[in-house]
Every structure is written in C-alpha cells, then in structure tokens.
Design a protein around this nucleic acid. Structure first.
Lengths: 113, 113
DNA sequence: TGCAAATTTCGATGATTATCGAAATAGAGG
DNA sequence: CCTCTATTTCGATAATCATCGAAATTTGCA
C-alpha cells in the first residue's frame, strides 16, 4: 500500500461529515443506501453530499451502482481492510500493539478552545 | 470513541507529510526521535515540521518529552489502536470483513490528473 | 552573564476545502 | 416528446491549510 494512497484515504475519512457518511454506508451493509436517503439522514444540501461522496469514491472507499433512477452507494470493505492493514503494519513494526483500550488517548486537545 | 475525535485523528494522518512523520515515529519505537532528526529525514523547513508535529500532538497521536536540549517525539500506540479499533468496529458491524487483500481498492483515482 | 544549539512562534502567501443555491443533466414512463 | 424525480455540475464565498523564512524562545554550558 502506497503511503500517498493511504494518506488520501485517511484524508477522505478525516472529515466529520464524510466519516458519518461512510459509517452510514458501512452499517447499511451490502444493500447500500441511495444518495437521497443519505441526504435525508445527514441533513445537508444535495450538492454538498454529492461533493463528499465524490471524494470518497475517488479514493476507492465507496462505490456506486445505478438502480433505475436512484444511485445506490456502498462502502468498499476491502479498501477499508487494506487501509486498516496499512495502519496496523505501521503501528506494529516493532512495537507491542496489544493494548485494546487506550489510556490517555481518547480525548483530543482543542487548540481553539 | 467519539466520531468527531476519530475524524480529527484521521484528518491528522490524512496528509502525506504527517503520515510519513508518524510512520517514522512508529518505526523508531519506544526510543522515539528528536525533532531535528525528523527534520533531516523529511527534508522540510523546521517551522513546517513543527506545525505538523503540533497537529499530531493535538490529536493525541504523538507525544513529546524533553531530553536536555532536544525534544524527543514518540508515537502514541494506544491512540492508534483506539482509532484502528473504531474503524474496525464501524467496518465489521454486520459485514464480513475477512478479506485480507483488497481487490480494486489499491489505486486511487486522481481527479486533478 | 553570555554563547550556541534546538525548537517554536510570527507573519505572509498561495492552494485547497466545505458549503450553499441555482441550473443542468440523466433515466423512466406516459 | 414531455414531465417527473434523482443527482450532479457550476459558480461563488468564507474558512482552513501547507509552506516558508525570519525572529523569538528555551535550555544547557562555559
């Protein structure tokens, strides 16, 4: 896995709207979800959703399939597995990555606060 | 794991420079790496490196410790484990995430090309 | 105290991003 | 061909980001 590709995919997921979007798709399973339903669920403008969807598709994390008039979106599980595999490989090169729960890592300091 | 935190951490890793940076730290293991050495390795301005490092630290993915004059940076493994855990949880809610190698997910379409 | 090395902060600039509404496009069906 | 619905593209705007060099800061040491 090329580090550039990994970075692009991480960047694609590194936005609250897109991560919610992706999560909804993952939870929808193989059935996927139509664009319109995603829009209702996220409550954003259709054009904004289309923009984010496009970014996810470009990185290969999401795919689309036409069903008559509606477009069904699906999470691309193998892509995510690949990405997670990359992270785990990097993480476990020579460090014991067995901690299942992080200690002080669950909160993010916010510089703007 | 809050989805906002996950998004922030993914965003932090979703930049080629920072991902290289983080990878170097992960590979350095518990010994960590001084800022100066990271700068040599990445070949970027010290101020740029400091900026990226700051972002990684804010998300809890990297920590620093002073050793006399130099600052030692270390990857925060538990944070990464937490993040990977989040991704895996989302991914495996009801989908069989057993594919170890992705099929068509290894290449990223580049809209700017 | 004063110097040297390491790192950050400041200030600026160009590039990218997120968001929206309006208009355009695509597919189905009468 | 026309219309309806679903979705994307366009154009614009405000916000955030990456990057650099110069200046300031911190720390140790003589």
């Amino acid at each position: 896995m090329d580090i550039e590709i990994a970075a692009k995919q991480l960047e694609a997921l590194g936005n609250a709207t897109r991560l919610q979007l992706y999560r909804a798709l993952v939870r929808a399973g193989d059935a996927g979800l139509p664009v319109g339903r995603l829009q209702q669920r996220l409550g954003i403008a259709a054009s904004t959703l289309s923009h984010h969807l496009h970014r996810l598709i470009l990185t290969g994390l999401v795919s689309q399939e036409r069903q008559t008039t509606t477009l069904i979106c699906r999470a691309n599980y193998p892509a995510m597995n690949n990405l997670v595999g990359f992270l785990v490989d990097e993480c476990c090169v020579d460090a014991g990555c067995s901690a299942s729960e992080a200690d002080g890592a669950a909160s993010v300091a916010d510089s703007a606060t």
